[in-house]
Amino acid sequence: MKETNIVNETGDAVISLEGVAFGYDPEHPILHNITLSVPRGQWVSIVGPNGCGKSTLVKLLNALLPKSAGEIVVCGQPLEEETIGSIRGSIGMVFQNPDNQFVGATVEEDILFGLEGLCLSYDEMDERLKLYTEKLGISHLLSKHPGELSGGQKQRVAIASILAMKPGIVIFDEASSMLDEGSRNELLVILQGMRDEGYTILMITHDADEILASDRVLALHGGSLAADLTPEELFRDQELLARCHLREPYPWQLARELQRLGIRTDVPASEKELIDTLWPYNYSK
């Protein structure tokens, strides 16, 4: 990749929030006193029960919703009226419903919708259109109408549309929850590729596999930040999991149940590994 704006400079924060709040009624804010920072290139899972304010939080970052208090700084720019345009340029968002974010009548038009708004030259648009449709494996679908695509294909189009605008940060707002299992796995592979290319990823999710693949978990509860920890720490904290309406991946559940029965075992990486650890001697019964 030859992009210069997504070079991995670990350490500096691309997103920082200081005492951020949101709500129309100051007595009952939807979000209150959120302070956090995300370094460049990090993959962050945002978890929490429905109605905890996850989706609101990410919409504050590019001013799709107006914050009622606090400071938001994205890529070194404080979020103000004048910087909204440039901040929206550095944040891409993929939403839950694959249908409702498809602006164009064809795949090509949808990808061009964002590029034309950037006032790019024909050659530049053409190059990005080719590059990103190829990357997402949708170049054969360019003239298709959204009604002819599966949910997974539509989400690929949404991702291509956004990556073609070259944001450094990509936010996924429950982007996998309406997909079938195969498409969810494909999305996970795309995300891993994006991490390797240095994108900063914020992902609202309930999916244990997606959380496990990420670097860090922010747990929201009742409109405030309840925990900031690693996926492994989250999956070991039964109380927090229950509060966030989550479950750990199956191998973690199994290891926990085995430990409860006094069988010492680590979380197995595969079923084969479990069998090999539990029954190291090759006896047959």
Partner: peptide, 24 residues
């Protein structure tokens, strides 16, 4: 609901009414 989602998606991609655009 669709209209609301669509507005979010368009605005998140930097769309502003009457802003200059180029054409492919």
């Amino acid at each position: 609901r669709r209209a609301q989602d669509l507005v979010y998606s368009m605005e998140a991609r930097g769309f502003r009414m009457d802003a200059p655009r180029t054409r492919y």
